[in-house]
């Protein structure tokens, strides 16, 4: 008879020291009395430790990639943002544009800073990888469907943010507005707080809700970070 299946949970818990004192005593007694049982446990533990170390290495690789992508892309991104900010500063002196035009002028797609797209990764998060791969290739329609699917499985503030980004990039502005609003209400402390207010402000502008848009831009200005602060300030000065 194959006893292995019955013992999986027991072995797993024992290895991680999760047994109660009583269970631990019973376990030790069995180890002492039953040679087969002892051997079975040793085999389980030996391979389990291998897999834990192996999985740990894969996870670390993922973080190393994330870290190198973040440190490479960040400065470029901020430099680009600074240039854009200066250009708009000059531009703003000469021209006042109403909502629709301002939206066009100020809107740019938010970069993928979350999931570096890599090839050939044997990852359980394949929907996530696929979604961001499409996002990176500017297939916003395709990415949108996958983000929505992911959110059904697991609510996540950052995925919801990127879903809203795909909606903005596919001109689904009313829907984008409500998704961003919900994001702020459900996750007031989310990672992309300033970004959420910024894009929420822009979409309100586009949807001709100027007063509400101004509130959103004020939040961007008040946010401790530097994201789009200058642009938000410019917009506040320009809007009636």
């Amino acid at each position: 008879m194959n006893k292995q299946d019955d013992n999986t949970e027991l072995f797993h818990k024992r290895m991680l020291s999760l047994l109660s004192d009583e269970e631990e005593q019973a376990f030790a007694a069995r180890i002492a009395a039953e040679e087969d049982f002892a051997q079975e446990y040793q085999e389980y533990k030996s391979l389990a430790e291998v897999l834990i170390v192996q999985e740990g290495e894969e996870l670390k690789k993922q973080l190393t990639t994330l870290s190198s992508v973040a440190s490479k892309s960040e400065p470029v991104w901020w430099k680009a943002a600074a240039v854009v900010a200066i250009l708009f500063g000059i531009f703003a002196v000469y021209q006042w544009a109403p909502g629709e035009d301002l939206y066009q002028d100020y809107f740019d797609p938010y970069p993928n800073v979350l999931v570096p797209t890599t090839r050939g990764q044997d990852s359980p998060d394949s929907i996530l990888q696929r979604a961001f791969s499409k996002y990176d290739r500017e297939d916003y329609q395709g990415a949108s469907v996958l983000f929505e699917e992911l959110l059904k499985q697991n609510p996540s503030d950052s995925i919801q943010f990127y879903w809203a980004m795909t909606l903005l990039n596919t001109e689904q502005n009313q829907k984008a507005e409500s998704v961003l609003k919900e994001l702020m209400e459900e996750f007031p402390q989310n990672e992309f707080k300033a970004e959420t207010h910024w894009y929420y402000g822009l979409v309100l502008l586009k949807n001709k809700e100027t007063e509400a848009a101004k509130d959103a831009f004020k939040r961007v200005v008040e946010h401790p970070g530097t994201f789009k602060k200058k642009e938000a300030q410019e917009l506040l000065e320009q809007l009636p």
């Binding site: 999986t8 072995f11 797993h12 030996s46 291998v50 192996q54 999985e55």
Partner: peptide, 30 residues
């Protein structure tokens, strides 16, 4: 011996790795 197992594990097919992970890593019953 475990290091040798680790090297061998990395050469297994995806489906085998997945199955062994569920059993030995996640500690799930069949």
């Amino acid at each position: 011996e475990q290091l040798a197992l680790k090297k061998a594990f990395e050469r297994l097919s995806d489906s085998c790795r997945q199955l062994l992970r569920l059993h030995y890593y996640r500690g799930l019953t069949d």
